[in-house]
Design a protein around this nucleic acid. Structure first.
Lengths: 138, 138
DNA sequence: CTCCTGGTTGATAACTATTATCCGCTAGTA
DNA sequence: TACTAGCGGATAATAGTTATCAACCAGGAG
């Protein structure tokens, strides 16, 4: 934990530790606001902006994951048939993925959950961005 | 098309037709704003709010699908290991789904895409909301 | 232990995506 | 063609998130 920060060269502050510990203790996938509400009891001076910035930092360090898509905007599609998506993490491009084998995934075994459908999100680099990244490495 | 509207009892206006046709003609999963930009050339009087409202209408009619998650807020998770989610469409609750069989999905065959990972989103009703819906039906 | 310095914090303003409001107008029906 | 419920347009309002910037703290040098 402490090492992860040192390795990345970012200071380990009280606030960052507090945000991470709170998040690790909860299993309800809280939003930034929700974390802020919980934390302000123990740290009244904590700012909401700090929670956002800290979550961002932790995310880039790979210590935390985001549940929802990284693009804030809702994006639409005239294709209603079941299909899946490949999202480019660099440019945000969304490509359709048609693969019937993905359509027949078994429903989750979580007790009482009534499944209505599912979708698979692949994330990675699209052809164009993969090439660009390649060039940078050279 | 025209029937879908009649069946649902909603008027088929020029604007709705225009939005749908534009969306059907594109395959880049445009956002509301992006559609608005394209449409305002042919329909200068079109309002952005109308695009939003129309997309919402089309979505509830099942004629259009949203790519991103329905919850606007980003939600975080201290679990970095590969796992999946079951999202309740009624209350927004997110449950973790651990199922190794889902972790080994084949990467998309889209040309040039460099996959980094994937996640499966189940959507449906959680145990609590399924019960509530049941009561309403009675 | 103390000082220094760059990165961080906190408070707030700004910004972006989306939704609500209100009034004039239009699609669908008779 | 006339009627009327619902829609469209313009704008304000809202929610979530990010930018700004002065004051402050963590962590290394001395």
């Amino acid at each position: 934990m402490r090492e992860s920060f040192r390795k990345a060269g970012v200071p380990l502050t009280h606030q960052r530790l507090a945000v991470y510990e709170e998040l690790a203790a909860r299993h309800d996938h809280p939003s930034a606001e929700s974390l802020y509400e919980s934390l302000r009891k123990a740290y009244p001076s904590l700012s909401l902006a700090t929670v956002y910035k800290t979550l961002q930092t932790l995310h880039t360090l790979g210590m935390v994951s985001r549940v929802d898509s990284p693009t804030a905007q809702a994006r639409y599609d005239a294709i209603v048939a079941t299909h899946h998506h490949a999202v480019c993490t660099a440019c945000g491009k969304i490509e359709d993925v048609f693969d019937p084998s993905l359509d027949r995934l078994s429903a989750p075994k979580t007790a009482g959950f009534v499944p209505a459908g599912h979708s698979v999100h692949f994330h990675g680099l699209c052809a164009k961005c993969a090439k660009t990244t390649d060039k940078k490495k050279k």
